[in-house]
Design a binder for these strands. Structure first.
Lengths: 367, 367
DNA sequence: AAATATGATTGGAACGTTCCAATGTTGGCA
DNA sequence: TGCCAACATTGGAACGTTCCAATCATATTT
């Protein structure tokens, strides 16, 4: 602990040169010690370290970064932290990076392309060792090409952009949606709505495809009006349910683009005196923590966002180690978690006892 | 845009010296131009800027930071991003900092004191211009004294720690809770539970005090068993309701320590076939976005976390401008938002029409 | 016409690291 | 005794900025 008087002005913080003097070695030696180099004799190293502590030395990364032409910062760009999915992803990401000795330079775009461009440029100035990008909607592949010219490793997360030549971590959207829809079909639902964006990009496309495939596999037709175009928000979920309930050939269940939409749906159902899982079935996608404690608890396709974040970090770290290996790719296999929001269709009867809802033992103190 | 070939090796990025040469000025001039100094003639400035763009120049902050002995990074330490309250806070924070030309070095502690200490030290090495700290539970004032000795401005957020000599941004917990409890009392509830931690630190104390004061003001007594000790999590909310409903003198309403707890409570009520707002009343605290779309929508005390974050950022920026002004302090005045989760007690009848639920017009695309 | 003020530009020494090449210092071996 | 290898350590030139003091040109005042 430095013996710096609380009120006193800084007074020129010690540098490796100061340590070198005090320890009667050269600054090169000190530098090597601080880097944990095996070149230095063990006893010298401990002595130097002792002196450093005694002087209250603080490593100066600006200086090191300047000389090394690199930093230990990873720039992380998130499009919507308001969605717990991304918050949880970020948590997993940051933890993994910190464990590896990296520090997270974080920026939020709120889906704004200009902001996105600005923060990326800023991260470049700061010499970020790598970038993790959850691209905003409509991010152009051109931007990525540009970043590539910066010669700084980028990992795209969640939403694929551009060709397959970029490192990518995401989830298997088609398989996940297929599982979700199949689950509803197996519970006897024949009229199933899809609540989400039309033309919302590749992720939407894949989910819609999984939905269509599952319907086909169960010989169910899809009425056009069941594909309900809403923004992927809680508000959107509400609106989607309102629309769905007003349809001629009214669905008895809905797959929701993500958990947020599903929450909106649950809310709207509740306000109409309907209970999800009994009067109407809802399945979400993402597996955010809140889903275990919504009303009712949400059946969803879990991609385990925190784990996805951790994997993404791992991928980038691998890339940093192997700058010129072929594109890396990680697709989380999502998992169906059955909770109370999805039930049996009228007429169809449960032949077995419903499985108890899976409930995470997660226990975290908050606020 | 730099005309750098996509595959080619970097090849020594241009520096101000290169620009100086190309523009036939000194590097001092270039430096001044980049800083937007008024000392330089306008036409020279534009010419230099032109050359810089042409060469694909990128400002090197490591170098600048080394020389200036300072950076434009603000270290932000969050204890629990998993709680949307903090996620929204972070969003507000980051946006404000970015607008002011600062970049956010973000770390998540997950309430772990060791992690907290580690990341703070790391931010110090990176020469953060200032720190924003949402302290983990049981953060010792000693840690803050230590940081003070670093001579780097710190702003404490949400949870006060140590004496009043630190800059602080938070919300008026007592008044907020008072309003929440009053709301329940005015709706005819006489047996009101308090779901939260006992001994959970100053924030808990203040909320409990506001609760007690409101009860007293309405001549209501508080049975000990109504003070239900649960962790401030969704799980905790569930457990709290289970306990509450099992009590001899069973409450008809509950104030929840935060919105997360309230969500757990709503979930548990739902699973027991009870409807919040009709069979039992729930009020939360924080005003996170999800509250507008829970089932049912949540009555809560809103502190507008995003705005709190923005204010916090402003406070720190002020401090950076005025390093030695007296301690700054910002207490957000929380606001009661009445939605459907709180209703009239049995027997008490609504004499006026219930106000329409306030619903934010927020519309954000996600995932 | 000299003196002074104002405006525009510049040299060069820092800032605190890293890392290459060089220098000592041992000890082993022929 | 001399030679070489292995081990420990070291000088010093970068890295790309900033900013002070100095210089040079031009305009204004006396």
């Amino acid at each position: 602990m430095p013996a710096q008087a609380p009120g006193k002005p800084p007074g020129r913080p010690p540098t490796i040169t100061d340590i070198a003097e005090a320890a009667h070695v050269s600054k090169s030696t000190v530098s090597l010690v601080l880097q944990g180099s095996p070149l230095i004799k063990a006893e010298t190293a401990t002595r130097v370290r002792g002196v450093a502590d005694a002087l209250g030395y603080v490593y100066n990364r600006s200086a090191a970064d300047l000389r090394r032409r690199a930093s230990n910062m990873i720039g992380t760009v998130i499009n919507d932290l308001t969605n717990p999915f991304f918050a949880e992803l970020l948590v997993g990401l940051e933890r993994e990076l910190a464990d590896a000795g990296y520090v997270t330079l974080m920026a939020h775009t709120g889906e704004d392309l200009q902001t996105q461009e600005r923060v990326l440029a800023s991260m470049r100035e700061y010499h970020a060792a790598g970038l993790i990008l959850c691209p905003a909607f409509d991010t152009s592949p051109a931007l990525l090409q540009q970043i590539r010219a910066w010669h700084i490793p980028v990992l795209i997360v969640v939403r694929p952009v551009g060709d397959e030549s970029f490192d990518f971590a995401g989830s298997d959207n088609e398989t996940g949606t297929f599982a979700a829809t199949t689950h509803l079909a197996e519970r006897g639902h024949r009229r199933i709505a899809f609540l989400g964006r039309v033309g919302g990009g590749p992720v939407y496309e894949l989910r819609r495809r999984g939905f269509a495939r599952a319907m086909r596999d169960h010989s169910l037709t899809i009425e056009d009006e069941w594909l309900i175009d809403i923004p992927p928000t809680r508000e959107g979920g509400r609106a989607g349910i309102r629309q769905a309930l007003a349809l001629r050939s009214r669905p008895t269940a809905a797959f929701c683009y993500n958990d947020i939409v599903a929450f909106g749906a649950l809310s709207e159902l509740g306000e109409r005196g309907l209970r999800a899982g009994r009067d109407f079935s809802i399945v979400g996608f993402d597996g955010i923590a809140d889903g275990a404690h919504s009303n009712p608890p949400l059946t969803t396709i879990s991609v385990d966002p925190a784990r996805l974040g951790a994997s993404a970090a791992q991928l980038l770290l691998t890339r940093l180690r192997e700058p010129s290996s072929p594109p890396l790719r990680y697709l989380a296999q999502p998992q169906l978690i059955v909770r109370q929001s999805s039930g049996w269709a009228e007429g169809a009867r449960a032949t077995t006892v419903e499985p108890e809802a899976l409930r995470e033992p997660l226990e975290r103190r908050t606020t």
